[in-house]
Design a protein around this nucleic acid. Structure first.
Lengths: 196, 196
DNA sequence: AAAATAAATGAACATTCATTCATTTAATAA
DNA sequence: TTATTAAATGAATGAATGTTCATTTATTTT
């Protein structure tokens, strides 16, 4: 038996994500990807069933990486403020360290692939976050409200800030950069909203 | 001179947006679009320079429609709470009445086309919103903070809620539907965050 | 060293792609 | 009515697409 060359797998994944972020989902061609990864087109089909499978697998992989990073040092028993601060920082750090992958996940989330993507995404993470919010409610650190409303207020602003940053948004001719300071300032507003 | 058939233009636009939302940017082919719109492929090129131009023009058109709707009955001199409530309701209404177009804009916003898209989007709207926030700050209804932070807290949650709704998100086996009541409840949280 | 296995390949496949062009159609201006 | 103009067309183009397959290569097992 001949073993799979891990470098090839990584090259395919990396180049594919790069291509999609740079040229869009419609800019990803199997043959161009093969060339960019230094691999035969047929090789890609050893790793992935077809083009759609490639895209979804990559999205799941990247998303799991993000989820994993967001849970680093996290504990559902943490105080609400501490837990939220850690989640925000972990997510922002993932973005700083993997901007391309983050943009890729966001792109997939807003594409026609989202449905299959979200289906496969019901894992450990939801469980932990449920515990976290339940605990916070019990401790009167968080108001009671539907999970989706909580999530929207808790993380919607962070993702919007990241989007502004990654797109080099400018307002009144001043370019926007997301600093840890501004992030924590914004988080304080979010906490104010969510505390009883 | 022969006049352009407006119905054809509308059919092209509508079918293109539908196709993109349903099958993604990589699912949009000029020939399929022509067939769906009941038009010759060559006709599309009378209205649009090429495929990319088509996509961007459509995105700009839809986005302007959204912007316009969001400003209906809006006045930058309004009280902060009233103004925010109106913006949320207007945006939510646009989504309810034009779900496909809304999803389309969101998809483009998160695609490689965003840059060209945002460049052409610096119009009347920003001016009005700047007046609105300045006025609210002056009246001590809104804390002072960078525009991007304000926007993130003010509208990030709404867009996240809309996303949950449009994707038929479910939590604890309960499907999520965005009601006006929950929307207004969430808005109250956002206002709590943004008020001095 | 030989056999066995699966990874890896490059050429090839039929399709589909975006776009063009010579021609026709319809509406206005003369 | 006739001339003029641009909209609209359908067929055609060559390039690029996703995927397959017979073959080769590298590694492990016997």
């Amino acid at each position: 038996m001949r073993a799979r060359d891990e470098n090839k797998e990584i090259a395919i994944r990396q180049k594919a994500v790069e291509m999609i972020v740079k040229e869009g989902l419609d800019g990803l061609s199997m043959q161009k990807l093969a060339k960019a990864a230094g691999v035969s087109p047929a090789t890609i089909y050893i790793y992935y069933k077809d083009r759609d499978d490639l895209i979804i697998q990559l999205a799941l992989y990247a998303s799991e990486k993000l989820t994993c990073t967001s849970l680093e040092n996290f504990n559902p028993e943490m105080s609400f403020e501490e837990g939220m601060k850690l989640q925000w920082r972990n997510r922002a750090r993932f973005f700083t360290e993997n901007p391309t992958e983050m943009l890729f996940v966001e792109q997939i989330k807003h594409s026609q692939h989202y449905e299959r993507f979200v289906e496969a995404n019901k894992g450990h993470f939801k469980e932990v976050m449920t515990k976290f919010t339940r605990n916070a409610i019990k401790n009167k650190e968080l108001i009671e409200l539907p999970f989706e409303a909580y999530w929207s207020v808790a993380f919607g602003p962070l993702y919007q800030l990241i989007k502004f940053h990654s797109q080099g948004h400018s307002y009144a001719n001043k370019e926007f950069h997301l600093t840890d300071e501004l992030m924590m300032e914004t988080l304080q507003l979010v906490l104010k909203a969510l505390k009883p």
